[in-house]
């Protein structure tokens, strides 16, 4: 069983992170939108049992795509790595 306080900590970290990206790319909303799209693609692949064993995006691919997107924003990228299951 998962301790509820860990869940809320993860939720809180995710909110802070999304807010940070949104703020960072206020002048370049297309980057923020691309980030959301990468996450949605990843999630869709994860939730679709038909995509197994040929899963769509691996954690590594997600990280690579986000790394391309966040080029020059190393703090955002390293923080993103902390969310990935196999970073």
């Amino acid at each position: 069983p998962t301790p509820p306080e860990s869940d809320s900590l993860e939720f809180h970290n995710a909110i802070s992170y999304v807010n940070k990206i949104k703020t960072r790319f206020l002048e370049r909303p297309e980057i923020y939108r691309s980030f959301l799209e990468i996450l949605h693609t990843y999630q869709k692949d994860q939730l679709n049992p038909k995509s197994r064993p040929f899963r769509g995006m691996s954690e590594e691919e997600v990280f690579t795509e986000v790394a391309n997107l966040f080029r020059g924003q190393e703090d955002l990228l390293s923080e993103f790595g902390q969310f990935l299951p196999e970073a």
């Binding site: 998962t2 909110i15 980030f35 959301l36 969310f83 990935l84």
Partner: peptide
Amino acid sequence: SYDFTPMDSSAVYVLSSMARQRRASLS
């Protein structure tokens, strides 16, 4: 407080699920 759209909220949801998976895989 945050001004989040539904898209933002689902990103939060995905990120926190990822973090939970990560914790599960580390423990």
